[in-house]
Amino acid sequence: MTRLARAERLRILVIAPSRHLIRQPHPGGLEAAVWDRVRSLRALGHEVTLIAARGSDFLDRTPERMLLPGVVWGGARTSDEAYPDGYLDQVSSVLGGVVDHLIANPDAFDLIDNHSLHPTPIERSADHGIPMLTTLHTPPLPELVAAAVVAGAAHSFVAVSSHTASEWRAFGVDSTVLPNVVDPGAWPLGPGGQDLVWFGRLVPEKGAHLAIDAARMLARKITVLGRVGDVQYFDEAVAPRLGADVRHLGPLRRRRLAQVVGSSGCALVTPCWDEPFGMVVAEALTTGTPVAAFDRGGISEVVRGLPGARLVPPGDTAALAAAASALLQTTPAERQTIRQHAIERFSPQRWLPRLDALYRQQVSRPVVSLDRVPAEP
């Protein structure tokens, strides 16, 4: 018997990254993608249990003991790279307990949809025998690569872009490419405007300071939107650049964020690392707002063949300013065309059927009988 034979409506355990809450305003693209995934799966009728930090949305089915700790920094400290002392030990304890529960209850779920950046869910995936699909949202992380080696061929991976898939493949981890999606209802067509916009995490690898420099080359106002993920970077590289022509609004809930982006003449995207996907590109284009971006990582793949996007050499702020200047001439009719093409590329209606097919492929495999002593509940 297969798991699929037992139920067409799947019982799915989604494991989120633990650093931030899975709720609005979204701390970053990874958390937004997981939030959208859970919401979409529940809308399709699946029974979804979310393992995420306390205070996240969608925790109505999650046992108390399976809630992850959120990162708590003292004072103004914050980092999207490091963790407070002892934090990872807490996460390891909770995730270890989740795996022990799955070993003791191997029929509790039909599938595990994993987005965690912690190695435990991958490393111990063979212990419970439940089919598991892990999405690769980041460049290769040594601890996850090592966990994938332990898990072996039984574990399946999905990458958010061909670029990301190729990076992981170089370390022996094969994956199927399944791009992130953008809900066109949440990112409606905007009227455009004369000013520029930058949105994302305020961390060094996202390069918001370079977008400000490019805007000043054009003598255009720019709105910077996003959570401060690195206080030192913000204080040293962004705050000194703020002024009458540069405002920082901080993180916004999606509806307000989409309004600001859609009311801008051009979005600047300035990665200083190899971007695994580039969610902000897809979101801006869905509002009809054109994008000028540094050509790094998966961004060229995201915009390939789409109108309203211009790529320039990484770090070249003069070229970025020139591309933005041309895109600021975009007409209302052209904005509608940009949006339509973006919807065709990124809409859930295109990609959710493929995700469902991947799920069905996983759960259709014969159930492996594990001769193990059940862990203590």
Rank of each mutant, 00 (worst) to 15 (best):
A76M: 05
A76Y: 03
R77A: 15
T78I: 15
T78L: 13
T78V: 15
S79V: 03
S79W: 07
S79N: 10
E81M: 13
Y83Q: 05
Y83H: 06
G86W: 01
L88D: 13
L88V: 01
D89S: 07
D89P: 00
Q90D: 10
Q90Y: 01
S92C: 04
V94H: 04
V94N: 05
G96C: 02
G97E: 03
V99I: 03
H101I: 03
I103A: 05
I103V: 15
A104C: 07
N105W: 08
N105Q: 14
N105E: 15
N105L: 05
D107W: 04
D107G: 08
D107T: 11
D107N: 11
D107K: 12
F109G: 08
F109W: 08
D110T: 06
I112D: 14
I112T: 11
D113H: 15
N114V: 00
N114C: 07
H115W: 10
H115N: 11
S116W: 04
P119G: 06
P119I: 02
P119Y: 03
P121N: 07
E123D: 05
R124K: 00
S125N: 09
D127M: 06
D127A: 12
H128L: 04
H128M: 09
G129S: 09
I130G: 01
P131I: 03
M132L: 13
M132P: 01
L133M: 09
L133S: 08
L136C: 10
H137E: 00
T138I: 10
T138M: 09
T138P: 00
P140D: 03
P140L: 02
L141N: 08
L141W: 06
P142K: 04
E143G: 00
E143P: 00
E143K: 02
E143C: 08
A148N: 06
V149A: 14
V150R: 15
A151F: 13
A151P: 14
G152C: 10
G152D: 14
A153W: 07
A154P: 08
A154V: 15
H155W: 02
H155A: 07
S156R: 15
V158L: 15
V158K: 11
A159M: 10
S161R: 09
S162N: 13
H163D: 08
T164K: 08
T164M: 02
S166H: 11
E167M: 15
W168C: 04
W168P: 02
W168F: 03
F171S: 09
G172L: 06
V173Q: 03
V173F: 01
V173S: 03
D174V: 14
D174E: 15
S175Q: 10
T176C: 01
T176V: 14
V177E: 11
V177K: 00
V177P: 11
L178N: 00
P179R: 06
P179L: 02
V181L: 07
V182M: 08
A186F: 01
A186H: 02
L189R: 02
P191Q: 14
G192F: 11
G193I: 03
Q194S: 14
V197W: 09
V197T: 12
V197L: 04
